[in-house]
Structures are given as C-alpha cells and as structure tokens.
C-alpha cells in the first residue's frame, strides 16, 4: 500500500477534489455486463415503470463504485482503502437521452484515526438530491 498523501499533511476538514461522473443508458448496459447485474430496472423502462420507479435507475453499486474514486484518486493507491460503506437513499434516475444523469461527489476528512488511517465522509448528489447516505471510507495514508 503506497498512498501518495501523507497522514501528517491532512487534518479534519481537509477537502478532497470533487468529481462529477456522467451516467447514461449506455453506461448502465456496460456496467450490467461487467458486473453481472442484469436486473431490468437498470435498462428496461417499461419494467421500471411497472414496479413503481420513475424511470430506469442506475445500479446502486455503480454509484458506489464512482463515489470511491474521489478517495482512490486522491490517495493514489486504490489498495489503501480499508473500509468503505454506503446507504442507498435515493435512486439515480437515468433518462433515455444523450445526457443521462450526473453524479456529483465530494468528500472531506472527518476523522484522523490510529495507524495513519483517516475517515473520509463522502457526499453524492444527483439532480439536487443526496443519493448515498452514511457514505464513509477509511483509507491508510503514507
């Protein structure tokens, strides 16, 4: 594990570079194939409406995969992530157009722990709504 950020250089409140992640229907089809999650709510509008959703929604695990990139790109080593957890609070609704949806993720250091570990709290927003709750990662810094 070789993080490029040193533990001594961060403090509680240090903000990580925020990122925006676009997601279209094509993204969801690609993610379905790569992850093996072919639930039709992620690609079939008719099915999504029938089960009471407003439209096709992104895989929660896709959003979870995007949000941690704020941490892994900052830390430099994806293997430095020790813990990562989220709650799926609101769906990311993905319309059938060329723009899709935009997941905006920010993060800041919420606690400094022992052994060069820090806890980063993440906020993921789509269309003005928080789509993840309790989104926290613990990462080992240099």
């Amino acid at each position: 594990m070789t993080a490029k950020i040193s533990y001594g250089s961060v403090e509680v409140g240090t903000e990580l570079p925020a990122r925006s992640f676009p997601v279209t229907r094509a993204t969801l089809v690609q993610y379905a194939g790569a992850s093996g999650d072919f639930n039709p709510i992620h690609w079939n509008e008719k099915f999504a409406l029938e089960v009471g959703l407003p439209d096709v929604i992104a895989h929660g695990m896709f959003t979870m995969a995007e949000a941690i990139r704020v941490v892994t790109d900052w830390a430099g080593d994806p293997g430095a992530v020790v813990d990562y957890g989220v709650r799926f609070t609101k769906p990311v609704v993905v319309p059938n157009d060329d723009k899709g949806a935009l997941i905006e993720v920010s993060g800041k250091v919420a606690a400094k722990l022992d052994d060069n570990l820090v806890r980063v709290d993440l906020v993921a927003v789509c269309d003005g709504k928080k789509v993840l709750g309790m989104s926290r990662a613990v990462v080992r810094l240099a």
Binding site: M61, G79, V82, Y84, G85, V86, F88, M134
Partner: peptide, 13 residues
C-alpha cells in the same frame, strides 16, 4: 428486494 446498505472491510485488495 432492493439494496439498502453495502459495506466492505478489506484485509487486502
């Protein structure tokens, strides 16, 4: 069934 929460604790990647 919907996915409520997800957590991972890693010993190594």
């Amino acid at each position: 069934v919907v996915h409520g929460d997800q957590k991972f604790s890693y010993v190594r990647p």
